[in-house]
C-alpha cells in the first residue's frame, strides 16, 4: 500500500558520529513544525534514543511487546510531553536480536505509518543484522558522517549497501564540523566529503558543546529553542526535509575575528 508517510533511516556505519542525537533533534524539530513524527529506536543492542529525549523513565512497553502482541502499539508509544506531535517507540530487549527478522521490523513500521507523517528510524552502528533489519523497513535514508577518514570510509560502505537495497533518496548530513579546523585545512572540507561520497548534502551540523549539555539534561537542543550553532543547524535540516529552501550555514563565515579572517585568506584557492 502506498502511503505518504516518509520512512527515513538515519544511519552511519561507524558508531558515535551522532545518529541518535540527530534523530532526537530532527524528531523534535519536525514535531514543532506540526507534523506527526515517530522516532523508532532500532538499536536493540545499545539503545539510547530514550535517554537523549528524556523519556527513559516513561517506558512501559517496547517494540518487543508490540511484536509479541502482548500490548497495543499506542500503549508502547511514549508521547513527548512538551511536543505531543512526537512519539518514541522504544527498542526492546537486546535478546530480541536473536529472533528479530526484517519482517518484524516491517510490521512495526507499517503499524506506525497509519498514525504518523514521519517515521525516523535510528539505525544501529555496523552493517550486520541490526542494520539489515532496519534497512528492510525503510524507504529513504539520511547518512550521518563526520569529517574524519574512518567515518567517511564507513559511510561509503553503508551508502553502497543502501543502494543495493533500493533506498532512495539518500542524503548526507555532515556532523561535528569545526569551522576553524576546516579553515586551517586540518579537517576534511564539506566539499571533500560530498565529492568523495557523491551524495546530496541535506545539511551540516557545527561542533557544539551545548550538545553534551543538552544530552545531560535529556532535552534536545531543538526542544528548548536554543540559538546555539548546532541547534540552528538541526532546525535548518528539519525545515529542508519539509521542502523549505534554507541556505547552508557557511562554516567559513563563522567567527569574525582577525584570526578567522586570516584563516580565510589562507584558504584562497590559487589553482
Amino acid at each position: 500500500m502506498e502511503t505518504k508517510t516518509r520512512i527515513i533511516l538515519i544511519c552511519s556505519g561507524k558508531g558515535g558520529v551522532g545518529k541518535t542525537t540527530l534523530t532526537a533533534n530532527l524528531g523534535i524539530s519536525l514535531a514543532r513544525q506540526g507534523v506527526r513524527t515517530a522516532v523508532l529506536d532500532a538499536d536493540f543492542g545499545l539503545r539510547n534514543l530514550d535517554l537523549l529525549l528524556g523519556l527513559e523513565n516513561r517506558i512501559v512497553y517496547t517494540a518487543q511487546e508490540v511484536l509479541e502482541e502482548s500490548c497495543r502499539l499506542d500503549q508502547a508509544l511514549v508521547k513527548h510531553k512538551q511536543e505531543p506531535n512526537l512519539s518514541l517507540l522504544p527498542a526492546g530487549n537486546p535478546r530480541m536480536l536473536d529472533w528479530l527478522k526484517p519482517d518484524d521490523m516491517q510490521r512495526i513500521v507499517s503499524m506506525l505509518t497509519d498514525k504518523f507523517d514521519y517515521v525516523l528510524i535510528d539505525c544501529p552502528a555496523g552493517v550486520e543484522d541490526g542494520f539489515k533489519n532496519a534497512v528492510s523497513a525503510s524507504k529513504e535514508a539520511i547518512v550521518v558522517t563526520n569529517p574524519e577518514v574512518s567515518a567517511v570510509r564507513d559511510a561509503d560502505r553503508v551508502i553502497g549497501l543502501l543502494n543495493t537495497h533500493g533506498i532512495k533518496p539518500i542524503q548526507l548530513v555532515l556532523n561535528r564540523v569545526r569551522p576553524r579546523m576546516m579553515a586551517s585545512q586540518e579537517m576534511l572540507s564539506i566539499e571533500d566529503v560530498t565529492d568523495i561520497l557523491a551524495l546530496p548534502l541535506l545539511g551540516i551540523v557545527l561542533e557544539d558543546e551545548q550538545v553534551i549539555v543538552s544530552t545531560n539534561r535529556g532535552e534536545p537542543l531543538t526542544l528548548t529553542g536554543s540559538k546555539s550553532p548546532a541547534a540552528r543547524c538541526y532546525s535548518n535540516i528539519a525545515k529542508r526535509m519539509q521542502g523549505e529552501e534554507i541556505p547552508l550555514i557557511d562554516p567559513s563565515k563563522e567567527g569574525s575575528g582577525i584570526r578567522d579572517k586570516f584563516r580565510r585568506l589562507m584558504q584562497t584557492k590559487i589553482f
Binding site: E148, V149, V152, R153, M182, Q185, E186, M187, L188, S189, D192, I196
Partner: peptide, 9 residues
Amino acid sequence: SASTARERL
C-alpha cells in the same frame, strides 16, 4: 592534514 586525509580516503 586535510589533503593527506583526502588522498588516503
